[in-house]
Computed example of a mutant assay.
Amino acid sequence: MSSINALAEGIAAPGRPTGKGSIRIRQVAHRYGRGEDALTAVGPIDLDVPPGEFLVLVGASGCGKSTLLRLIAGFETATQGSIEVSGTAPAPGRTAGMVFQQPRLFPWKTVGGNVDLALKYAGVRRDQRAVRRGELLHRVGLGETAHRRIWEISGGQQQRVAIARALAAEHSLLLLDEPFAALDALTRERLQDDLRRVGTESGRTAVFVTHSADEAVFLGSRIVVLTKRPGRIALDLPVDLPRSGVDADELRAAPEFAALRREVGLAVKAAAT
């Protein structure tokens, strides 16, 4: 057993690509425009994601990562092929909770008010929202900030609110499109720690888009590297690192972590040429 795996009793076992939170992608490609001006952004791609997996999509700018995420969310319909989430076609707002690069919060509402609105749209009864709001804010480390205005909290805290809002609905799938890209390095690392913990605790399937090999290895239980446009799968790599029971700094310092980071980094560079 490797030194880092010895720090935890178990590794998340791969699940079957069926059931609640599963994603099934078959021969999916997506084009923008028509005729001679048509641009194929991604595909064709075949991919199965089992329930509970934390999948990270990584690649150079313009390789189709965000396009694929929007297709999974149901914000766009694939030009070719099919996508199923939990056995059905994706539908905007119903398939998954979504976290964007910018928090997209309502500045005239408090932190708690933003979460309450998400709970309202999720169908949570008014008399149950305060308890649920408290649980969500505590989960993302903002238990004492419900009364504060959005402009009174930092950018990192705002992104935590966005994550809490995405978790408000009982979706089995969480989609995150470079949510930490605009943050400073220290805040980004802290939120990576938090998201890794939240993902493990919630048990939800997650798909996370990033440019960073380091972020991909730290967060993912599986990493898919996409080629340059049109994005296709260049590498599909399981991450054999413990998901719990190990200190984050210790994990980042482990030789197994460094080896995976190097492998992903080299794959991204090769796929971009």
Rank of each mutant, 00 (worst) to 15 (best):
N5I: 12
A8H: 12
A12H: 07
P17G: 12
Q27N: 15
Q27P: 10
G35L: 08
A38F: 10
L55Y: 09
L55N: 06
L57Q: 02
V58N: 06
G59L: 02
A60G: 13
S61Y: 13
G62V: 09
C63Y: 04
G64I: 03
L71I: 09
L71W: 05
F75V: 14
E76W: 07
Q80A: 07
G87D: 14
T88R: 15
A96K: 01
G97E: 01
G97C: 06
P103A: 07
K109I: 00
G112E: 07
G113T: 03
N114M: 11
G123D: 04
R126N: 01
D127G: 04
R129S: 06
R133I: 09
V140N: 02
R149T: 09
W151M: 10
E152T: 06
I153M: 10
G155F: 05
A162N: 03
A164P: 11
A169G: 15
S172H: 01
L175E: 08
A185V: 15
A185I: 09
L186A: 13
R190P: 05
Q192R: 14
D193S: 08
L195A: 04
V224L: 04
L226V: 11
L235Q: 12
V246D: 12
A254P: 05
A254H: 14
F257E: 13
A258D: 12
K269A: 14
